[in-house]
């Protein structure tokens, strides 16, 4: 198995009210190609921080992060943007869709940044939305969609660029149990059928059940790292 994500002695310290707070403390772990990993733990355990460092959304205080053979510490802001655009897909807790664009345009947007031609990106965006059951809602704006539908649009935006790794931060936080179940089936299918590596930060037991590997974080340390059958 190829290693797609590797973290070595990763530390992240935040300065809060003059006191340093260690969100991550000497964390080392790796994720192989095609894994579905949940980073679990209570609030403040460091799971979102770890996810952000893997995604290049934040800089470590010390330690190293590799995506494949690329050492993220060495990349400047522009190269990190390129990496996120071509190698990674993000699903956020608050969906983070662009409110003035409709679902189709939101999904097309990342492909537009990649320089994909107008026709190809429309075709791919529509196909992705249809595969997620949103074909009829393609021309609706985020405000006209339910939370579950918005999260599926966010997933469509994340996967339409065919990323190596999909990172999801509390993807079920704003969803009801039925929508959560639908989302997890979707992620599971993406992982099993398309081989997309998925790393999700969550404290939702249902999400943890769907992941094939669970990394438990407590106070910035990895407390447990175990594979689970789903």
């Amino acid at each position: 198995m190829n290693v797609v994500v590797r973290c070595e002695s990763l530390c992240r310290t935040y300065q809060e009210d003059a006191y340093p707070v260690k969100a991550l403390d000497e964390v080392s772990f790796q994720v192989n190609d095609g894994e579905f990993v949940s980073l679990a733990g209570p609030s403040g355990s460091g799971k979102s921080t770890l996810l952000n460092l893997i995604g290049g959304l934040d800089r470590p205080t010390s330690g190293e992060v590799y995506l494949g053979e690329t050492r993220l510490n060495d990349l400047d802001a522009t190269h990190l943007s390129d990496l996120r655009l071509f190698e990674l897909g993000f699903i956020f807790q608050d969906y983070n869709l662009i409110p003035v664009l409709n679902a189709l345009e939101n999904v097309e947007f990342t492909m537009q940044l990649q320089g994909v031609s107008a026709k190809e990106r429309t075709d791919r965006a529509l196909a992705t939305l249809e595969s997620l059951g949103l074909g009829d809602l393609a021309h609706r704006r985020p405000s006209e969609l339910s939370g579950g539908q918005q999260q599926r649009v966010a997933i469509a935006r994340a996967i339409v660029t065919r990323p190596r790794v999909l990172l999801a931060d509390e993807p079920s936080a704003n969803l009801d149990s039925k929508s959560t179940e639908g989302l997890l089936v979707l992620l599971q299918n993406l992982n099993r059928e398309q081989g997309v590596t998925i790393i999700t930060a969550t404290h939702d037991p249902m999400v943890m059940r769907y992941a094939r590997r669970r990394v438990q974080l407590v106070d910035g340390h990895i407390d447990a790292d175990e594979s689970a059958e789903t």
Binding site: A77, L88, N96, T110
Partner: peptide, 15 residues
């Protein structure tokens, strides 16, 4: 926050 989201999905700072 909007710029943060755009950076997160891969838009370059100069863009």
């Amino acid at each position: 926050p909007e710029f943060g989201m755009l950076l997160a999905i891969g838009m370059k700072p100069w863009s």
